[in-house]
Nucleic acid binder design. Structure first.
Lengths: 154, 154
DNA sequence: GTCCATGCAAATGATTTGCAGTATC
DNA sequence: GATACTGCAAATCATTTGCATGGAC
């Protein structure tokens, strides 16, 4: 949907923030590759296409802003750099998807269904009295495709 | 057990590595606070007590070594610095415990039972064909104690 | 005696910050 | 026109690396 941009502008206004080309471009880049998990540097390179004079510091500042507004999510794959992906604006604050399957063979990152986690969290809340508000789950393993390829080789 | 140190010495020898005071001191510090999740800097400060001339670089090098030998585990709580905790030497490579409950009120970090996760992982393997070999799970929320205190205030 | 390991200082790489100029409201 | 935002360069912070010295085997 292209009213994504309008929603975002409204969000900036609501928070007393100014609408600038830079602030529009960063989420636009993230939204254009929803499953890519880009680093700040990668975002910088892509943003420069539509906004050639932008500085890296502004990219970082905008990322910070977008995180605070929950427009984007931070992902840490422990590969030395933090990554970001577009969140689902307007879907409500409960709709995180900080849970990834990471293939140790090809590096591909995919998500899995929320509801599987909800079950786990319910059980933990019951057994520990800990009330869960957010999560970050990374499962490392071998994806279907790589598993198939490894079998072929044998 | 104090044969922990002997086990570790054996491990070094097996890998053709030299036994030095520094290499003995770092895991010793980690073992003395098993649930503390120390940063490299914190380890450095503690190691200096028994080994005053050690350099920070050696701490980092030793940590790297211990990670490779699976003597310690890395934990990233996304608070800007990586933390480490002693692993269970000799309990076999399958015994990770990279799954934590993090209280957003008091910052306390605890672990939860493995078997709850195993169930989740089984389900995911069945539904996605992804074969899981390791995990890092962080659940953010409010611990029992803080939950109680918050209720009292009302 | 031979190398591996260490300490120190300098290098690195991601991220942040200070500041003067610039654009938004 | 006031003030928030930006770009640049310098600063920061955790971690790594080069190199000459020192210690383990």
């Amino acid at each position: 949907m292209s009213n994504y941009r309008e929603q975002f502008k409204k969000l900036l206004k609501q928070n007393g923030l100014k609408i600038t080309a830079q602030r529009l471009e960063v989420p636009s880049v993230l939204a254009s590759c929803p499953d890519k998990h880009l680093t700040a540097e990668e975002i910088y390179e892509l943003v420069k296409v539509g906004c050639p004079d932008i500085g890296l510091a502004t990219v970082y500042r905008t990322i910070q802003l977008l995180l605070e507004l929950s427009v984007i999510d931070r992902i840490n794959l422990d590969d030395g750099c933090v990554r970001y992906e577009i969140g689902n604006l307007g879907a409500g604050p409960e709709k995180h998807h900080h849970h990834h399957l990471i293939c140790v063979e090809c590096g591909k990152v995919t998500s899995f269904e929320d509801d599987l986690l909800e079950e786990l969290e319910e059980k933990i809340e019951r057994t520990t009295g800990f009330s869960i508000v957010n999560h970050e789950v990374k499962l490392y393993g071998i994806c279907k495709e790589c598993g198939g390829k490894l079998l072929e080789k044998k």
